Simulated scan of single mutants.
Amino acid sequence: MNIELLQKKIDDTKYWDMSILDIQTQYFNDEVYIFIENDEETCWKICFLSCYKVSYETDANWRKIDNVKEMRGGQLGYDGQDISLKKYEGNQNFVECFLDLSIMTMNIVCKEIQVEKLNMEENRFFWQERSI
């Protein structure tokens, strides 16, 4: 795994100060997805795959709204500040990822990272108004 190449792919998303649209997990946290605003038509999806460790801290101890699920777009306040990668000391087949998302920090240890650009029309995030 080429850490420098992966870091460049992530940095090429220009995530700094961009809104974090959602964080999702699948398969008992084996996969973690971070969705980052790109423009009105597209977003970035960073996939952390074969996760060994996932930990995070949020703003739940001081925010005024009890549940994030009650928030909408502008209220969220999660913005990309730093995403840094390094080899995981416990096993060289893994990469350690530190994410500073302004009011949330995460540490993820995983085997693989993928970065892809998605069309916003194909995604609906929990905070978007839904018409019935």
Rank of each mutant, 00 (worst) to 15 (best):
K9E: 11
I83H: 02
E112S: 08
V95T: 11
E121R: 15
N107W: 06
E116N: 11
D39A: 02
E37A: 04
N91L: 01
K87L: 00
Y56N: 07
Q92E: 05
N61P: 03
D79E: 06
M106P: 06
M104K: 05
I10C: 03
D79P: 00
Q114D: 05
G74F: 08
I20Q: 04
M1Y: 08
Y27G: 03
W44A: 04
G73E: 09
E31Q: 08
F126L: 04
Q75E: 15
G74H: 11
L99P: 08
T58L: 07
E96G: 00
I36H: 02
Q81I: 01
E129S: 06
D11R: 13
M106L: 09
K53Q: 11
E116P: 05
I3G: 12
T58H: 06
Q114V: 01
V109A: 00
G77S: 08
I23S: 11
S19T: 04
D17G: 03
W16E: 03
N29R: 13
I36K: 14
Y27Q: 09
F94I: 01
L76V: 09
D12N: 15
W62G: 07
K53I: 08
L85Q: 14
I20N: 01
M71E: 10
N38C: 07
Y27V: 05
M120D: 07
F35I: 02
Y15L: 09
E96T: 00
K9W: 08
D59R: 02
V54S: 10
K45R: 14
Y15F: 15
Q81T: 00
Y52P: 04
N38G: 03
E122H: 11
D30R: 15
I132Y: 15
N67F: 07
C51M: 11
W16K: 06
W16A: 00
L76K: 13
N93V: 00
I83M: 07
D22K: 13
N93A: 04
V115W: 06
N67L: 05
E129W: 04
Y88C: 00
N119Y: 14
E37R: 08
Q92K: 08
R63N: 14
D79Y: 07
W44S: 03
N91F: 02
F125R: 05
N29Y: 15
L118R: 12
N38M: 06
Q128D: 01
C43I: 04
E116R: 12
T25D: 15
F48K: 01
V115T: 05
N123T: 01
M71I: 10
S55D: 13
D12P: 10
K86V: 00
G73P: 03
Q128V: 00
T25C: 15
W62D: 11
G73W: 09
L85W: 14
G74Y: 11
Y78K: 10
F94L: 09
L85N: 09
F98C: 00
M71Y: 12
I23V: 15
K53Y: 09
Q114M: 04
M18E: 04
W62L: 14
E112M: 06
S102F: 05
I46M: 03
